[in-house]
Design a protein around this nucleic acid. Structure first.
Lengths: 115, 115
DNA sequence: CAGGATCCTAATAGATACTG
DNA sequence: CAGTATCTATTAGGATCCTG
């Protein structure tokens, strides 16, 4: 890009963040952490997510091979989602973030999400 | 986990993400990882960040006590930023994310950031 | 030097209604 | 049941100019 490559912006941590830093990805991954779930189940389990965002998030996770989609041959038909091994491998790193938040909850401003 | 804990959305991992999941927070934290830096230095080191976003990101990190701001009594005057102990404690968890990205780079879609 | 103030655009996410 | 399709409000982030 430029002559001197001080472009910290492509630090690898950002790659992971690009993947899961949106509002719902992590929540969905955790939602599937306990095992496969059907679309509707997942929606209920998560609570507060719109169907649009659930679908959109699942598609993104699918494209990145974190989640696998299977159409069930049951009646009535359904669709099941599960974490791939790659998706499961992400549970660890994300749990590390979760633990950090729990340990330091009191030190953080209460409006951590504010710009 | 109890019978039904809906609203996974307040999972603690999201707290950390709210804090650092924007485009620049992690980059700035890493930029300060090696030690204190002045505003301009930091800007150069990072490269590609606008002053608006740098300031805004620093303020957010400051509010959450990850970063400390010190006005220098030098001539010409300057401002120095450094990680607080809390900020340093975040380097570990974020590095875990970075390592995950490096290990699995090939398995991910090349457009991981796409919606 | 280190920002603040403004303007502007593209992307995000929610609500709602409709469909195979 | 598992999605699309719209429409809309909010937000993030860049560019530019101004200031103590």
């Amino acid at each position: 890009m430029s002559d001197h490559d001080v472009f910290l912006a492509d630090c690898p941590a950002r790659t992971t963040l690009d993947l899961v830093a949106d509002t719902w990805s992590v929540v969905v991954v955790f939602g599937l952490g306990g095992g496969p779930h059907r679309y509707g189940e997942l929606c209920d389990r998560i609570g507060g997510i719109s169907k649009k965002m659930l679908t959109q998030t699942l598609r993104k996770l699918e494209r990145n091979k974190l989640v696998e989609r299977r159409v069930l041959a049951t009646a009535p038909a359904g669709v099941e989602y599960r974490l791939t091994p790659l998706g499961q491998s992400l549970l660890g790193p994300v749990s590390v973030l979760a633990r950090w938040a729990e340990e330091h909850a009191e030190e953080l401003a209460d409006d951590a999400s504010a710009p």
